[in-house]
């Protein structure tokens, strides 16, 4: 019930991010979601792609520092304050959140929230117990 996210270390120099997307494009890898976290000097690009292992291989070949991270993808419950409910659930159980971002899956037609928490396994149990829908890799890949 976890998604594989690709994280790439980038210096804050112009052209680096586009180099990453270029490499993936040439390898025919589809980027489903992308978000950047940065400081003054460097940043981390986080991506959900259709072929994570291949993406990692291609980027390493081009001398990028890459890691594969387990994250959780959930669809927001269809009610007011849906996102707050999810965050609240985890906070109450003392699951600390590293980061969070959202994207819209055309295939599912809904907003998907990506969560990176310290204790992934417990978070999955809590969310499942409370009937939050977890997304699998196959559900979001475009055909």
């Amino acid at each position: 019930m976890q998604l594989k996210q690709i994280s790439v270390f980038l210096e804050n120099k112009s052209g680096r991010l586009s180099r990453v997307t270029q490499i993936l494009k040439e390898a025919n890898i589809d980027i489903l979601a992308l978000c950047v976290a940065d400081s003054n000097e460097y940043g981390i690009v986080r991506m959900i792609v259709d072929k994570p292992a291949k993406a990692m291989e291609e980027l390493e070949k081009s001398k990028f520092t890459v890691s594969l991270t387990n994250v959780i993808g959930v669809t927001i419950p269809d009610s007011a304050g849906g996102l707050a409910t999810v965050i609240d659930l985890l906070a109450k159980q003392n699951i600390s959140m590293e980061y969070i971002y959202a994207f819209t899956s055309r295939k599912i037609g809904e907003a998907i929230i990506i969560l990176r928490v310290e204790d992934t396994q417990s978070a999955i149990e809590i969310l499942t117990d409370h009937h939050v829908k977890l997304i699998t890799h196959n559900e979001i890949i475009r055909e």
């Binding site: 994280s7 270390f9 460097y42 981390i44 986080r46 520092t65 890459v66 890691s67 991270t69 980061y99």
Partner: peptide, 15 residues
């Protein structure tokens, strides 16, 4: 220079 073994994907781990 960063290496894969040093890299985790949070800014706080880089700091």
């Amino acid at each position: 220079e960063m290496t894969a073994s040093m890299f985790q994907d949070t800014l706080k781990s880089l700091t």
